[in-house]
Design a protein around this nucleic acid. Structure first.
Length: 753
RNA sequence: GCCGCUGUAGCUCAGUGGUAGAGCGCACCCUUGGUAAGGGUGAGGCCAUGGGUUCAAUCCCCAUCAGCGGCUCCA
């Protein structure tokens, strides 16, 4: 006698077990028709799932025309599409392809498969696979679930000779894998891949059609009722992946695909991908000559060309001005620091894998050579030192105070320098170089500081993942009471800058400590206060934020910024981190009202991450069409013919005098070609000048992407308007002024209001 | 770092076991023009680097480097 509670609170009672489909039908024929799955007590299940006890139930429906599919609906469709794709691949490429693991993802799904020697999947197969998928979807075969007792199912899988499925089954049944020998945690532990319920005394299979007759797969489900409910699906790309993500294990082919409720949505998704590809900052950066990466200089090292340098510098000037308003003081520090410094800070040897190796002093090198120390010896020595220091630091981090000199005295075998991986040690030394009273706090030291990190070569990517980058860094040395206000200040800075750049959508993640872990330094009481401050600050922003326990650094809670660009992609930028540890490591203090020394808390903050990444994100956000104040070239004057070159120069000189970045296209192309080129170069304003304009001391205005051939406007007025737009970092100001001008005046000779 | 794909003119890309082509860009000439490409001529390449196979390699094989797509990683 199950009683079923619906999402609106209604209850329905039945006198015998019913399927979710039956419940949908009892509510309405329309709902039953639209239903593709069910959420039973919060868990996504097949529509055919039988219900024999009291539960809460939500029917998952295919979206109505024009409506977006729910995440649950997409999940069902994509998980089902993975089966369809796998079947299609086995039809097209061969049954020898062994299936491993095929879950849905955020944007689609993939299926990892083992392709035996002699067989190959390539993009040449995509058309055939897509066609076969379309056929299967059209055949509208039912996804039919059936269960087999665990041992029976297992021996069946073993007889089929697919060790990957055997492994999945064994894991699902809570058994140690008899086939996978790797040491890494299994991906099969995630809920999407488990093929049985937690009890797992039986295994579930899904036939795409009739069991024993049609294609089948070991699978936990759930699925849509039948293949036609998938809507539209498509194979997207190939990549390699390892079994269990373990590089010592079998190499599998990962075939990516995606599915949507309708072909129109799939087409739209593909269109968006094209749009995103067009915005690729690496492509735009090359076309617009914004930056250059030269393999002779080194991977992941950015050469900022003149145009890109303007964008970066303008951005930096803007951020610096905001920092000044907030009471920051600017400092400069060198790009390297001695190893001792990083032993104190813990960077060496803690993070040695993500840093460039030490720069050894000539004296030390000479000494080592004289001793007959080979490179291998030296590496071992560095490793040995590293290990001992790491062990020592590990032990000591539990103590509330670590005397810097104790760590520094630990080992003098290796002396030298490191390219700095962070700016904080230098800043801590600046703070520590003079006495501080509580009356001076907080001390806010800001630096656009360049740091170097050893990113794995496969991670490097344009401007967004590099080995040398300049952080918009600052360290706020403050009292514990000042934490909330300082964190708040960091967030308001971010808000101002995002607002100016038109990045309206962003969210923050507040990383909190894992309550069950003891790896954190500092007292529970301090943590509570700092976490509360971070949460309160995030709340006050008025944007969405999430609390993420376990995501804090070991030395304090943090706030991460994730910004959404105009086409909806998210980018992780910078962080604000509260640090209780650094004051101890560097033995920093300020004198409190009690005339005794106190430890300052340090807030690290680089809200935009790095200038490199932020510029990369901005290039994609604006698709290279920067607002006027950021544009490398703000105005291009296009003379109609040689006759107007002198006048064009005069116009350009007037703009230049007003600090506008302007150039003159004095090529001998026709005006059409000059307009085309200026548009390709994404110059915000084109001033077309010919004899007519010269006669009236005017310019013919054309605005990038907004309006063509706006007609004439007095030169002086344009200079005034664009100066206003640039000075206030606005967009559209010139256009708006022009519209006002056109409305209120009859022609070019009159002045606008 | 691992796997796969790629590397030909400044850029985007064709192409061939007998040492190379297009379009754009660049230079020059004609054209002197009114809002998204006027016409012509020309310069420009050790075909990523190093080995090998071959009478002969840009092409086939191996290695290296770099880029791309993934995986893993990101204090």
């Amino acid at each position: 006698m199950p009683t079923i509670t619906l999402p609106n609170g209604d209850k329905k009672s039945f006198d015998k077990p019913v399927s979710a489909r039956d419940v949908a039908a009892s509510i309405g024929a329309g709902l039953a028709k639209a239903a593709i799955g069910a959420k039973i007590d919060g868990e996504l299940r097949d529509l055919s799932t039988m219900i024999d006890k009291d539960v809460s139930l939500a029917i998952i429906t295919a979206p109505k025309p024009g409506q977006a599919a729910s995440p649950d609906a997409l999940y069902l469709m994509r998980h089902s599409a993975a089966h369809v794709m796998a079947e299609a691949i086995q039809d097209v490429v061969g049954k020898e392809v062994l299936l491993a693991y095929g879950p849905p993802t955020d944007t689609g799904f993939f299926y990892d498969m083992y392709v035996p020697e002699g067989k190959k999947i390539s993009s040449d197969h995509f058309d055939a696979i897509n066609n076969r998928m379309a056929e299967i979807i059209k055949e509208d075969r039912a996804f039919t679930r059936y269960e087999q007792p665990g041992n029976e199912g297992l021996s069946r899988l073993k007889s089929e000779g697919n060790k990957y499925k055997v492994d999945n089954a064994e894991r699902a049944m809570g058994m140690p894998s008899s086939v996978y020998k790797g040491g890494k945690p299994a991906f099969a532990e995630s809920s999407t891949s488990s093929v049985a319920n937690s009890a797992a005394s039986s295994l579930s299979f899904y036939a795409t059609g009739t069991p024993g007759k049609n294609w089948e797969d070991l699978c936990r489900g759930p699925h849509v009722p039948s293949t036609s409910r998938i809507g539209a699906a498509r194979v997207m790309s190939l990549a390699s992946a390892y079994w269990h993500g373990d590089e010592n294990s079998d190499r599998l082919i990962r075939v990516y695909g995606t599915a949507f409720a309708t072909q129109a949505e799939l087409d739209e998704y593909l269109r968006q991908r094209e749009e995103a590809a067009k915005r690729d900052h690496r492509v735009i950066g090359k076309n617009l000559r914004l930056f250059h990466i030269d393999e002779t200089v080194g991977q992941g090292l950015i050469l900022w060309t003149p145009k890109g340098s303007i964008v970066r510098k303008e951005l930096q000037t803007f951020i610096a001005a905001e920092l000044k308003k907030q009471g920051y003081t600017e400092v400069f520090t060198p790009h390297i620091g001695s190893l001792d410094l990083y032993k104190t800070s813990g960077h060496f040897p803690y993070y040695k894998d993500s840093q460039f190796p030490p720069i050894i002093e000539r004296q030390t090198l000479d000494k080592l050579c004289t001793e007959g120390c080979s490179c291998a010896d030296m590496m071992r020595r560095v490793e040995g030192v590293s290990q001992r220091l790491a062990d020592g630091i590990n032990e000591r981090t539990r103590a509330t105070t670590i005397a810097a000199d104790r760590i520094m005295a630990d080992d003098k075998l290796i002396e030298g320098f490191m390219l700095k991986p962070m700016n904080c040690p230098h800043h801590a030394k600046i703070f520590g170089s003079s006495p501080h009273s509580y009356r001076d706090m907080p001390v806010r030291l800001a630096e656009f500081g360049t740091v170097y990190r050893w990113e794995q070569s496969g991670e490097l990517n344009g401007l967004t993942r590099v080995r040398g980058f300049t952080q918009d860094d600052a360290h706020l040395f403050c009292t514990e009471e000042q934490i909330p206000a300082e964190v708040q200040g960091c967030l308001s800075l971010v808000k101002t800058i995002f607002a100016t750049l038109g990045m309206k959508e962003y969210r923050v993640r507040v990383g909190l400590r894992d309550p069950d872990s003891s790896k954190y330094t500092g007292s529970a009481e301090s943590w509570d206060k700092a976490e509360a401050a971070c949460i309160a600050a995030a709340q006050s922003l008025g944007v969405s934020f999430s609390k993420e326990p376990g995501e804090a650094a070991f030395y304090g809670p943090k706030i991460d910024f994730v910004v959404k660009d105009v086409i909806g992609r998210e980018w992780q930028l910078g962080t604000v981190q509260v640090d209780y540890q650094m004051g101890n490591r560097f033995d920093l203090s300020y004198i409190g009202p009690d005339n005794k020394p106190h430890r300052p808390v340090v807030i690290h903050r680089a809200p935009f991450g790095s200038m490199e990444r932020f510029c990369g994100v901005l290039i994609e956000h604006f698709a290279g069409a920067f607002p006027t104040w950021l544009s490398p070239e703000q105005v291009r004057v296009l003379p109609i013919s040689e006759k107007s070159f002198d006048y064009a120069d005069k116009v350009a000189a007037a703009l230049r005098a007003a600090d506008v970045r302007v150039s003159v296209d004095s090529g001998n192309d026709r005006i059409q070609a000059k307009v085309k080129v200026a548009a390709d170069d994404k110059v915000p304003y084109m001033l077309i000048v010919g004899p007519n304009d010269e006669a009236t001391s005017a310019v013919s205005l054309r605005i990038r992407g907004r309006a063509n051939n706006l007609g004439v406007w007095p030169t002086g007025e344009f200079v005034r308007a664009i100066s206003e737009e640039i000075g206030s970092r606005k967009t559209d100001y010139v256009l708006n002024q022009f519209i006002v001008y056109k409305k209120t005046s009859g022609g070019a000779k009159e002045m606008p209001l």
